[in-house]
Design a protein around this nucleic acid. Structure first.
Ligand SMILES: [Mn+2]
Ligand SMILES: [Mn+2]
Ligand SMILES: [Zn+2]
Ligand SMILES: [Zn+2]
Lengths: 146, 146
DNA sequence: TTGTTTTTCAACACTGATTGTAGATAAGCC
DNA sequence: GGCTTATCTACAATCAGTGTTGAAAAACAA
């Protein structure tokens, strides 16, 4: 994702207006590595702007995704997660207990599909989702089993 | 997934009763490679038993998943998909246009996470999701661009 | 076959994330 | 300044899935 300043210009260049709400969302997303849901973005935004509406957050997130500045991920946690990291190809670690999502920056080469195994699909992308327990949730499940 | 006959025994052995509805669902799932949603299972089941309820289908699918006879997958298509193929480790091709899901039976070895990159996660599984266009949807998008 | 237990059914209300609508107000920007 | 767009509030709707109820049916053990 570009910086808030660059996004300001990008929005103007695309005929979108730059509002205080949108800039607030730009700032909130800036450097957020937690893959927040729309609700989480809204919560963080309200700390800067108490009156910002969830609707506006959804709209702006969709705008940003449309411009390719963030990506939206459905990782099976029940909510769409938004990822400002679009410049750095990576995969994801997902906690099956609390839904935490973390980047896994590692190249996994040769995800080549063997000839004929693609069943005629025109494959555009391959995502790897690693599921497990985050450090915090290892604690809580440890307590359960003792 | 076991055969309907074996599932019948398995259900009895687990103190569950074997009803006509459940056996109907066993038969419907048998050999289904389409990764059907609960709705799709229900639709197929009604062709054998017009009165079977969607509720019963959900219940039985959950029973089967609990017994490890099918797996439930959230692949971002908006509905949980059920997979009777639990004996054969594999990954999935997902059509981003129509939501079709197909097995990709190919071993992708060395999905080893580089040391330290796992951020302390206790990783239990790695799924690869290949997204693209199925043969049918390649046609329709071809027409759009001409 | 009888009696106990489970399952099913219909019908409905409810959840939770997300989208849609409306009109009024506010703000961006040329 | 004036045109355009965005935001707000508030509410309804969607959609997959879950929960509830009570009555009827079926399973199955004895
Ligand atoms: Mn990421
Ligand atoms: Mn499969
Ligand atoms: Zn966790
Ligand atoms: Zn398709």
């Amino acid at each position: 994702m570009k910086t808030p300043e660059e996004l300001t210009e990008l929005f103007r260049a695309n005929g979108r207006k730059v509002t205080a709400q949108r800039q607030c969302i730009f700032r909130v997303l800036q450097g957020d590595m937690t893959h927040p849901s729309a609700e989480a973005v809204h919560l963080a935004a309200t700390r800067e702007m108490e009156t910002i509406s969830l609707k506006t957050v959804y709209q702006t997130l969709h705008d940003l995704a449309e411009l390719g500045e963030i990506s939206s991920l459905d990782l099976g946690t029940g909510m769409i997660r938004f990822d400002p990291n679009v410049d750095d190809p990576h995969h994801h670690l997902v906690c099956r207990h609390c839904g935490k999502v973390r980047d896994l920056v590692a190249a996994f080469p040769d995800l080549q599909i063997p000839n004929g195994a693609d069943l005629g699909f025109e494959v555009g992308s391959a995502e790897i989702v690693f599921r497990g327990l985050c450090p915090e949730c290892q604690q809580s499940t440890l307590q359960l089993s003792t």
